[in-house]
Measured scan of single mutants.
Amino acid sequence: LAALHAEGPLAGLPVTRSDARVLIFNEWEERKKSEPWLRLDMSDKAIFRRYPHLR
């Protein structure tokens, strides 16, 4: 499970980098069924690119 911001401008976004990794992994797991070539990237760089508020 990932903790998400409940309200405000960040509502629905992950609270920590660990939470972001959970979301990225879950999405990758779903997408790899139809796109088996996808690589999993959970590096800090990938997290910041996707969720800049975690910098």
Rank of each mutant, 00 (worst) to 15 (best):
R21I: 08
P9M: 08
I24M: 13
K33D: 09
M42V: 13
L54H: 00
D41S: 05
I47D: 00
P9G: 05
K45R: 13
K32N: 08
D19G: 06
I47E: 01
R31F: 06
P14C: 01
R55Y: 12
S34V: 13
W37C: 13
P36D: 04
R17S: 12
R55D: 09
E27N: 05
D19V: 03
T16R: 09
T16V: 01
H53D: 01
E29L: 15
R55A: 12
S18V: 10
P36S: 06
I24H: 01
W28K: 00
P36I: 06
R50P: 01
D41T: 04
L4Q: 06
H5T: 05
S18F: 14
K33C: 09
A6W: 11
A2Q: 07
K32M: 08
R50H: 06
H53N: 03
N26C: 12
L13D: 02
A3P: 04
P52E: 03
A2G: 07
E7R: 08
G12E: 04
A2H: 07
K45N: 13
S43G: 07
F25A: 07
P36W: 07
R50C: 07
K33M: 10
A3S: 13
A6E: 13
W28Q: 02
A11H: 08
E30L: 13
K32R: 14
I47F: 01
L13T: 03
T16S: 12
P9S: 10
E29P: 02
L54Q: 00
A20I: 01
F25D: 01
E29N: 15
P52M: 02
A6Y: 10
E27S: 06
P9K: 09
P9W: 07
L13Y: 06
R31C: 07
S18K: 15
Y51A: 00
E35D: 11
I24P: 00
G12Y: 06
G12K: 06
M42D: 08
R21Q: 10
I47G: 00
I24F: 06
L23R: 03
R49I: 13
V15P: 02
L38D: 04
A46T: 10
A11D: 06
V22S: 09
L10T: 04
R31E: 04
L40V: 05
I47V: 13
D19L: 03
S34Q: 14
I47K: 00
L40E: 02
R55P: 05
L54N: 00
P9D: 09
T16P: 00
V15D: 02
A11E: 10
Y51R: 00
E29R: 15
A11T: 12
V22P: 01
L38N: 06
K33F: 10
P52S: 03
S34G: 11
A6Q: 14
E35P: 04
R21E: 08
E27R: 04
L23I: 11
L1K: 14
H5E: 03
L4S: 06
L4T: 10
T16I: 01
E27V: 05
